[in-house]
Design a protein around this nucleic acid. Structure first.
Length: 595
RNA sequence: GGUUUCAUAGUUCAACGGAUAGAAUAGGAGUUUCCUAAACUCUAGAUCCGGGUUCGAUUCCCGGUGAGACCA
């Protein structure tokens, strides 16, 4: 049974019966902890119908519900708030239903498809803290939709062309001496990143030298020999010069293998990768088509623009006067290609930082102007930057937190704390390592996902490693403790079944609180999907774990002598563990059997 | 300069326009003969400023101040 819906319809009936008005928007919300009850009806807005005080209105509706609904046990009124207590027998019924379900909260396949793009790094720089937020967010949103029955296609676009990769190529050609990831044991993405930095250093030095000869800065930037080489490589690349293409492929290959290792450790995956080098030509075609159709306009210098002044924005260039494409051109091509590849998808979710909000607003408008109806189903999952206590991450100032390093640090720290607490006794080496990985990454992922994506957040390396309180490990621990208890029950021959609890007549308050929480899970998943916000699930599983810990601390399970209560509490604990695993699962966080 | 996002305990985060603004950390005081103390209990502590709309505003509107982002 869906308690929420039943309650709403009962309230509708009450209003209809009492005041003769059938359809009403009703405000039903969770009851504050300090009051008795689980659901609260806000009665202030109803006074227009009842023509009496909020308190009296609440009493009238409360009386009706207790008499007629069959599941409202009692009620109390505080000001205009009608606090409803659902009968324990109803809660037990609700719990029995959940117990009999296979995956509480998850829905069967609904035949719908969506696409989620995330990660999409630059091939010159190793992944950093900001990418971690991006990856965890995108992955989690995809998993949330999967849990709700969608077929989800996870993709990313790889920015593999342009002057930036040529800079690394130029520097490697000059200083590399044939160095490869194999020859020096460095991860490929780190190696290429090293030469990108090398380029920058050399470039700056050359500018300084040139300026010393009395040339203007602007002139010096053009004259610097290493920049000339990079530009030369770009021209050769565009002309498909075999040697240049080979070098480009080789160095990109290094990066991809390096990224792959990082993705594996992060626990994220992709169904298909798109490369800008494959999509930018399609983008140009589409722009030309749009021009022919009169959607775009051409200026006297030959450049092509879109006029968005009618939409409150300005004019935006789509092809430069020399015919070269801009980012927008590529993104138009990529979007269209994806809908050709996956014709059944309803929309696309782009997981990209909020500094690109304007870009995506423009992109979606352009796609709409080109006549693609799916344009309005595209969504920019925009997220705020991750700040450090020292301020913004800046690669030039060396304040970037590297993704690989951070993961290693978190895992090492978790492993250390685990062994210090004596939790690893009797575990094999492999188990210990796996546990450290689970806890360290769990802490990191939870930390980055518990905050509303839209907001910028602060990452303090020294404080963020905490494993106590509102953290992933807190939830992992609650799960492990339940699993440990269930193992012990098994050893003692104690068990439960689908009937467990059904003969009970009353619940402990702590038990009721947990059932209320369990019952909220489906709605929380829906909300998270609708808002594209894993933080909804993250905060929910924390609340559930906290409620359960309160129960655990005060109510005996294995030591309970009444067999009916014992089997109910076992079943009840098992369901909590399942929901915790499921909720953490959609966040991309695994939970251990013991810790 | 234009557009836009944000501002909540010392700190990091919550709060469909609803009740005495929740947590977590850091601080203070406790809980282990009993299912895992990475836990639990108690305690102290906050809505940037000024107007407006509303029965009711952290939330909506206007104006400041401060921080960020984007567009030229």
């Amino acid at each position: 049974m869906n308690l929420e819906l039943a309650l709403r319809s009962a309230i509708q009936n009450a209003i209809d019966f009492l005041y003769g008005v059938p359809e009403q928007q009703i405000q039903l919300q969770p009851t504050n902890i300090e009051f008795e009850g689980s659901h609260t009806l806000v009665c202030f807005p109803l006074t227009k119908l009842s023509k009496t005080s909020p308190e009296e209105t609440a009493r009238q509706i409360g009386d009706y519900l207790v008499k007629e609904s069959g599941f409202v046990g009692k009620f109390n009124v505080v000001k205009g708030f009608l606090n409803l207590s659902i009968a324990d027998t109803t809660w037990i019924k609700v719990f029995s239903d959940i117990l009999s379900q296979k995956d509480h909260g998850c829905l069967p396949p609904n035949g719908k498809e969506i696409m989620v793009e995330y990660s999409s790094p630059n091939t010159n720089k190793p992944l950093h803290l900001g990418h971690l937020r991006n990856n965890f967010l995108g992955f989690s949103v995809a998993e949330i939709y999967k849990a709700l029955g969608y077929t989800v296609h996870k993709v990313q676009i790889i920015n593999d062309r342009g002057i930036h990769i040529c800079k690394s190529m130029a520097a490697w050609s000059l200083f590399g001496n044939g160095e490869t990831p194999e020859s020096n044991g460095m991860k490929g993405d780190k190696l290429v990143g090293k030469y990108y930095v090398e380029f920058d250093k050399t470039y700056k030095a050359q500018i300084k030298e040139l300026e010393a000869t009395g040339i203007s800065t602007e002139q010096a930037e053009k004259e610097a020999s290493i920049m000339k080489q990079a530009v030369d490589l770009l021209l050769k690349w565009e002309a498909k010069d075999p040697a240049t293409i080979l070098l480009w492929k080789t160095m990109n290959g290094w990066v991809y293998r390096g990224f792959e290792a990082t993705y594996t450790r992060m626990g994220v995956d992709f169904e298909k990768l798109y490369y800008e080098s494959d999509t930018y030509l399609l983008g140009k075609e589409e722009v030309m088509k749009g021009l022919a159709a009169g959607v775009f306009l051409q200026k006297t210098d030959g450049s092509i623009w879109v006029d968005l002044t009618g939409d409150g924005l300005d004019q935006k260039v789509l092809l430069r006067s020399d015919g070269t494409s801009v980012y927008m051109t590529q993104d138009i091509g990529t979007a269209i290609l994806r809908f050709r590849d996956f014709p059944k998808i309803e929309g696309q979710v782009y997981t990209v930082g909020n500094e690109q909000e304007y870009h995506f607003k423009v992109l979606f408008l352009i796609l709409g102007k080109l006549g693609y109806t799916w344009a309005k189903k595209c969504y920019h999952l925009s997220y705020g930057m991750v700040d450090l206590p020292t301020g913004k991450m800046k690669s030039r100032e060396g304040t970037v937190v590297d993704a690989d390093d951070l993961m290693t640090e978190m895992v090492n720290d978790a492993s250390k704390q685990t062994s210090e607490l004596g939790k690893t006794e009797g575990m094999r080496e492999q188990e210990i390592a796996a546990l450290g990985e689970m806890i360290g990454l769990g802490a990191l992922k939870y930390f980055l996902l518990k905050v509303d994506p839209k907001k910028r957040m602060l990452f303090d390396p020294s404080e963020s490693i905490s494993l106590q309180g509102h953290t992933g490990p807190f939830i992992q621990y609650t799960h492990a403790r339940i699993r440990g208890m269930l193992r012990k029950a098994m050893d003692r021959g104690l068990t439960w079944n689908s009937e467990s609890g059904s003969q009970l007549k009353a619940l402990e308050p702590a038990e009721r609180d947990v059932i209320v929480a369990i019952n909220q899970y489906p709605a929380k998943l829906q909300e998270a999907a609708k808002e594209y916000s894993p933080s909804v699930v993250a905060n929910y599983v924390y609340e559930l774990a906290k409620d359960y810990n309160q129960f655990y601390q005060t109510i005996p399970v294995l030591n309970e002598t009444d067999p009916a209560k014992l089997s109910f509490r076992l079943a009840f604990s098992k369901v909590v563990a399942d929901v915790l695993r499921s909720g953490m699962g959609v966040l991309g966080i695994r939970v251990p059997e013991r810790m």
